[in-house]
Nucleic acid binder design. Structure first.
Length: 569
RNA sequence: CGGGGCGUAGCGCAGCCUGGUAGCGCAUCUGCUUUGGGAGCAGAGGGUCGCUGGUUCAAAUCCAGUCGCCCCGACCA
């Protein structure tokens, strides 16, 4: 392909709208352009990458026994009413009406449509298991789209849905998908980590996310290198240490004056006591009224765990005014003693004695507060956020905490959709049962962006050959030199005969401009044809990450290129 | 939705405070020179200053409203 024949507008300067490196580079390399917030056009170069990701995904899904279908993007409200999500999904679901005032939505995901499709057709256990997938645009009216295609409102996703007769079979399918996902992200050349995850909006029994390791990731994950435990910190289990002061005698509760001590650090240094002995009391508003939650002073509370423990839809830290209303004291001095709120205690504080807690009164704390003695505890639960170096819940080894980009998410759904929508089949005994479902998503555009996020340098993108838009950047320096162009044409053919995709820079630009664009586009191998070298029958070959080019015989260049690409795949 | 910021040429920005001819760099076009890491010189084209209303002799500039975009917090592929 000649560069003069591909719509490839590269940018020298970074558009002000871009924040993260992948977004900047995708704009600069002419891969995408923004149309509206969270809505993007994919240009030829970007689309080539997207198609490569899709191809890998297709091959692996097909190999895993899934079959491709194509479901509608515009979906009738009735289906969503059946599953109950018309009410539950919220404003992220873009709703619209047709000319006859009938309600529809743009599909943010396709459980409803697929379940509806299957329920009419699957009647017998003999039809199972079945796994269908599609690759298609989704629309989610995100509160805050950002980072280019990484978190767009309209985005391409591969979504697969499985149907099994029972749990063991469904779990086998889940496992097969898990393995297929690992192969997909490996083939995309990504450094990734599968983690245990929450089920969120989609629901279901359990799930895993596939995280591409990158500092700009929006998720935080905890990984144990010894036993392999890995989880999103949203739900990573913590392993309690020995309770603070657990072997002491209970001392008498005592109110002390602690002027100007709003934070745990201030309290602990004022009282000359370890922050571990200070217990934070946090006041939350929930749909079921205010609640108090306690964690050790040097810990952070995990709101996800709290909402799970309370079994509520949300829990937000209460506003200062509300705190005063609930506890009688100002923010920063809340404590469990004598308050009229149910107290939830982090498991790490279970058995702790003689803690420092707020006194619900400005500039005062209690010392020697012991749960169960000086205040009542409604429930003990794992409520704290796992941090760097915390012990693995399985094997106690210190865990790593890193940032990740969620590129894939798989769920074992169980029967929630099939029951709600009446997707039933007859088992061997002739008994009617709901289908056991799973669903499996991959953000293809996000995967492409994540690959850039993980592989770039100060000059531009560094593609792995598997998903690179082209394999070889073929660059005749002087396009007005007939010999150079003849050599370039010939070499292009030879490279293509070897199955390589070639982008020939046939622009009448100065060499510097071409070199800069070559680096920006990040194509794995660059071959430069200069008139001087050509007279000796030589061309220059350089891998994108290599420091210096090497000279090669023109006749051998295609074979060398093939070797290089194979070696770096 | 709450908090912060920005809308001036295709891109990056200045001008606004203190109202008076709309500017700079890159890109584009023409010519000459140059020709292996984003060339030099000379010239040219391109703007309803986001939009609406107000104040004023006069508004990019002041005021009000509105729309859009970006960043930080509650979501998720």
């Amino acid at each position: 392909m000649r560069i003069s024949r591909i719509y490839l507008p590269t940018l020298r300067e970074v558009p002000a709208e871009a924040e993260v490196i992948s977004h900047k580079l995708m704009l600069r390399a002419g891969m995408i352009r923004k149309v509206a917030s969270g809505i993007y056009t994919w240009l030829p170069l970007g689309l080539r990458v997207l198609r490569k990701v899709e191809r890998i995904v297709r091959e692996e899904m097909n190999a895993a026994g899934a079959q491709e279908v194509h479901l509608p993007m515009v979906q009738p409200a009735e289906l969503w009413e059946e599953s109950g999500r018309w009410e539950k999904y919220g404003p992220e679901l873009l709703r619209l009406k047709d000319r006859r005032d009938r309600e529809f939505c743009l599909g943010p995901t396709h459980e409803e449509v697929i379940t509806d499709l299957v329920k009419g057709e699957i009647k017998s256990y003999r039809d199972l298991p079945l796994c269908l997938y599609q690759i298609q645009m989704k629309f989610r009216d995100e509160i805050r789209p950002r980072f280019g295609v990484m978190r767009a409102r309209e985005f391409e996703m591969k979504d697969a849905y499985s149907f099994d007769a029972d749990d063991p079979s469904a779990e086998r399918t889940y496992h097969d998908m898990y393995e297929a996902y690992k192969r997909i992200f490996k083939r995309c050349g990504l450094n990734f980590q599968p983690v245990e995850a929450q089920t969120g909006q989609i629901g279901g029994a359990f799930s895993h996310e596939f995280m591409v390791i990158a500092d700009t990731g929006e998720d935080t994950i905890a990984v144990c290198d010894k036993c392999g435990y890995a989880a999103n910190v949203e739900l990573a289990e913590s392993r309690p240490e020995d309770p603070v002061g657990g072997d002491e005698d209970d001392k008498a509760l005592e109110k002390v004056h602690t002027p100007g001590t709003h934070t745990v650090e201030q309290v602990s240094s004022f009282l000359k006591i370890s922050p571990k002995r200070v217990a934070k009391t946090l006041i939350f508003d929930t749909p079921n009224g205010p609640k108090a939650a306690m964690v050790r002073g040097d810990r952070e509370l995990n709101e996800e765990k709290l909402t799970a423990c309370l079994d509520v839809a949300w829990a937000h830290l209460a506003e200062p005014m509300r705190i005063e209303q609930y506890t009688g004291g100002p923010m920063g001095f809340s404590g469990p003693v004598g308050i009229n709120l149910p107290v939830y205690l982090d498991s790490e504080l279970d058995g702790a004695r003689n803690l420092v807690v707020g006194a619900n009164e400005g500039d005062h704390h209690y010392i020697n507060a012991t749960p169960g003695v000086d205040f009542q505890v409604k429930q003990v639960a794992d409520l704290r956020l796992v941090g760097e170096g915390d012990p693995c819940p399985r094997c106690a080894t210190a865990m790593r905490v890193t940032k990740g980009i969620e590129v894939g998410h798989i769920f074992k759904l169980g029967t929630q959709y099939s029951e709600a929508m009446g997707a039933l089949f007859l088992d061997k005994e002739g008994k009617e049962k709901p289908l056991v479902m799973g669903c499996y998503g991959i953000g293809t555009g996000r995967t492409a962006a994540a690959a850039i996020e993980q592989n770039n340098d100060e000059n531009g993108i560094v593609w792995k050959p598997q998903i690179a838009p082209f394999h070889v950047y073929l660059m005749p320096i002087n396009v007005n030199d007939e010999d150079s162009m003849a050599a370039a044409d010939k070499l292009e053919k030879e490279l293509e005969e070897k199955g390589l995709e070639v982008l020939m820079d046939d622009r009448d630009e100065r060499a510097g401009v071409k070199f800069k664009d070559a680096d920006l586009l990040g194509i794995p191998l660059r071959i430069v044809i200069g008139s001087k070298n050509l007279k000796q029958g030589k061309v220059e070959i350089k891998g994108r990450t290599e420091e210096k080019p090497r000279l090669a015989d023109l006749e051998k260049a295609a074979a060398l290129a093939r070797e290089f690409i194979d070696a770096s795949t």
